[in-house]
Amino acid sequence: MVYLISVTIIFSATTEAETALSVYNSFPNQFPYKPIWAVGENYRFEPAFVESSKLIKDIGDMMHIQVIIEGSMNSSNPYFNSSWRRNFVGGFVLDMGVHFIAGLRMLVGSEITSVSSISRHVDMALPPPDNICSLFQLENGCAGVFVFAVNSRSPKLLWRVDGTKGTIEVERGVDSGKHGYQVLFSGENGQCQKKFYPFCGVNEELKMFVQDMLAASKDGDHEAEPRSSYVEGARDVAVLEAMLESSAKQGAPVQVKRFP
């Protein structure tokens, strides 16, 4: 018999994530097979990020990165009054931010090693903090900025990587009535390629989970899709937690906790 678990969850701290991972790793001693634990992070399955991650090698050496997130979390948003999002340290910055960090990590293909951040609480209708500015460094040496306002008058979601041979940009938008992401790629020849990808990350992640279940029912040693792994979700949380910790230390650099 094969046991399978699908979980969409956000932990408030990496210590809780480590505890959960320890429990999960103990399962082979309790069940015939190790359960599949799939974390529902749709950004890792959005075609815009999947395809952009393939193009990143064509921009040469990364020079700098910009992530600009201007959200629209106000009283008209169905998630605005959800109590659980207000009852842990980090509030909407952590709850929403993990998705944007997932998109960043998916795009650049390099782990974030350290951060230096300043956060503030401006909109009293939101739990603190409601905006954060962070300087981060990747393990490949490239630096970037992550700017996130939970509620803005002019919503915008943008990821941009500038390299020695070109630039790649992913921005949320609408095309022909469909919501999704516009991908712009500029190469050495100076020409700009544009392509719009409608949202379908949730559908894609669920399809992959079903495929994993079917495969695991035939093979107890089946390895699940890496993009759905619990560890990937924990790494997203670790980056946001490091940013919040840095802010609590008045912007002092903080190393991002590494997960295996």
Rank of each mutant, 00 (worst) to 15 (best):
Y33P: 02
S76M: 05
A252N: 12
E41P: 00
R86M: 11
S246Q: 06
V183R: 01
Q30L: 15
S247T: 02
P35E: 10
S12G: 15
D219G: 03
N29L: 13
G60I: 02
V7H: 07
T8I: 11
S228E: 11
E18S: 14
I112M: 01
E205I: 09
G103N: 03
T14W: 03
R86A: 13
G141K: 00
R172P: 02
S114D: 10
K218Y: 07
L214Q: 12
P226C: 12
L107M: 11
V239F: 05
E204S: 13
A17I: 06
S26H: 13
L55E: 15
S117W: 00
P35W: 05
W159E: 11
Y24P: 09
D61V: 10
S72V: 02
S176W: 00
H64V: 07
I5S: 12
M243W: 01
P128L: 07
A48N: 08
S12T: 15
V210A: 13
S52H: 09
F100V: 08
R160K: 15
F80N: 04
G97K: 04
L104M: 12
E169N: 13
P32K: 10
L206C: 06
G97A: 07
P129E: 09
P47Y: 10
M243S: 05
E111W: 02
E41V: 10
T19Q: 14
R120H: 08
F92E: 03
V93K: 02
L184A: 07
F196K: 06
L4M: 15
S152K: 01
G40A: 12
T113L: 03
F49Q: 07
F45D: 04
V39W: 10
A20N: 11
P226W: 09
M213R: 02
Q250E: 15
V147W: 03
F185V: 03
D123P: 03
F259G: 13
Y230S: 12
L135K: 11
K195S: 14
S82L: 14
P128I: 05
M63T: 13
C200M: 08
Q66F: 07
K178G: 00
A102Y: 04
D219P: 01
K156F: 12
V202A: 11
S26K: 13
P35T: 09
G177R: 01
M96L: 07
I5D: 08
L4W: 02
V89L: 10
I69F: 04
E205V: 07
Y79K: 10
